[in-house]
């Protein structure tokens, strides 16, 4: 764990892009992965999608 904080920080950010941007502004190496929950987490729509597999 201690080694992690001593070494250069490289971040993979998932979801909210704002976190990646803030780190980038501070000079941290970041790869942003666009991700969001399927159907924005709407249970009703997810059950419809299940029917249409």
């Amino acid at each position: 764990m201690n080694n992690l904080f001593d070494s250069e920080l490289k971040v993979i950010n998932m979801g909210l892009e704002g976190f990646a941007e803030t780190l980038k502004e501070r000079g941290t190496k970041v790869i942003h992965v666009r991700w969001q929950p399927p159907a924005m987490g709407d249970e009703d729509i997810l059950s419809l999608l299940d029917k249409l597999k």
């Binding site: 969001q36 399927p38 159907a39 924005m40 729509i45 999608l49 249409l52």
Partner: peptide
């Protein structure tokens, strides 16, 4: 349609 909705 399924992909549009699932992936938003």
């Amino acid at each position: 349609i399924r992909k549009v909705v699932e992936k938003n």
